[in-house]
């Protein structure tokens, strides 16, 4: 891929807090994302893997301006969309960003025709003639493998896989450069999932798109990603190129995730990691994985590890690699 090019997206120390539990003393701060830093290069797919509560969706929503950041910086195509002049900056680059949702049923207004759904980004931006708009809708439908004759229909007439294609067509309407796919195939059946993954890969090649591909399924992430960030409890614990992550996972949590994948040969799977993701309200001091980690030692209980480069292109947040 493009190793030497400048990143189109630069995220530094991005954090997002949520206030929960009413007012006054009962109010608590939930750290959904803490100190995330990463880049996305042109034409690449950054896979973001994590379980529920890992903050992966929160990151995706912040990147397209659906959710403001609490701290940190997001730079998209050279514009910093966080901070005081973030709104104007976001308006300048908005047409280059898009989002594909998990549930294609909820992602379309049931009362709008497919043509109006797909053309929404065009209508919002304005300045298109009626004919150009209709031509573009037809072109987009064909681009995602659907018939242009579907334009006058309504969402309920389509199956889940077809709806996700329509959602992708909408995302492509203004020729974006970067698309956040938030669990974009998780709600689909296996055979539909393969179709949509292939479609996303084909579109990437043809249109030179970059993706942030958020998923909980490690196999799916392996199929689509160039590089992968592993999230745990709001923090990036490992950031690596795809091949090394799967052949030589460094972080104990990455190892646990890979070990948890079911295998058909009985007895080949290692016993799963204990416990569940901690509540983000009472995070343990030190490393967040510590209470579950089979390799934890004293230092892990008191001091949080930072994300550090342990090999070229590989970053891990774990005290096991302090000496490296």
């Amino acid at each position: 891929m493009a190793d030497t090019t400048d990143p189109i997206i630069r995220v530094r120390n991005l954090s997002r807090d949520f206030q929960v539990g009413g007012r006054g003393r009962k109010r608590q701060t939930l750290h959904a994302v803490s100190d995330a830093s990463f880049d996305v290069l042109p034409g690449e797919t950054l896979g973001v893997v994590g379980e529920s509560g890992s903050g992966k969706s929160t990151i995706g929503r912040m990147l397209v301006g659906l959710l403001p950041a609490t701290r940190g910086e997001i730079e998209l195509f050279g514009e910093t969309i966080t901070g005081p002049s973030g709104k104007q900056a976001l308006a300048k680059v908005r047409h280059k960003l898009q989002f594909v949702f998990q549930d294609p049923h909820a992602a379309m207004n049931p009362r709008m025709r497919i043509s109006d759904i797909i053309a929404e980004p065009i209508d919002v931006r304005g300045g298109w003639t009626r004919k150009d708009r209709a031509d573009r809708v037809a072109e987009l439908l064909e681009l995602v493998g659907l018939s242009a004759a579907f334009a006058d229909r309504f969402p309920h007439e389509f199956s889940g896989g077809q709806r996700q294609r329509i959602v992708i067509a909408r995302a492509l309407a203004l020729d974006p450069a970067f698309i956040v796919c938030d669990e974009a195939v998780a709600a689909l059946d296996v055979s539909m999932q393969a179709q949509v993954i292939n479609l996303l890969m084909d579109l990437q090649q043809r249109l030179g798109l970059s993706y942030l591909f958020i998923a909980h399924d490690l196999a799916v992430v392996r199929a689509v990603s160039t590089r992968i960030a592993v999230l745990y409890a709001g923090e990036i614990v490992e950031l690596s190129d795809k091949r090394s992550l799967y052949t030589d996972p460094k972080h104990p949590y990455t190892q646990a995730l890979l070990a948890a994948i079911p295998r058909p040969e009985v007895g080949t799977r290692k016993p799963p990691i204990r416990g569940e993701v901690p509540s983000l309200l009472n995070r343990p001091p030190g490393c967040t994985l510590c209470p579950r980690c089979p390799k934890a030692f004293d230092r892990c209980r008191t001091e949080a590890p930072a994300l550090r480069e342990v090999a070229p292109g590989r970053k891990v947040a774990c005290h096991l690699y302090d000496g490296v």
Binding site: Q162, D189, S191, M192, A194, K242
Partner: peptide, 24 residues
Amino acid sequence: EGLLKAIPSADEDVGRLYAIPGRI
């Protein structure tokens, strides 16, 4: 057969996935 081939693998890089055309 198609269903098995359509599942991406976490153990190897498969390139393009096999997809059963059409739908149920």
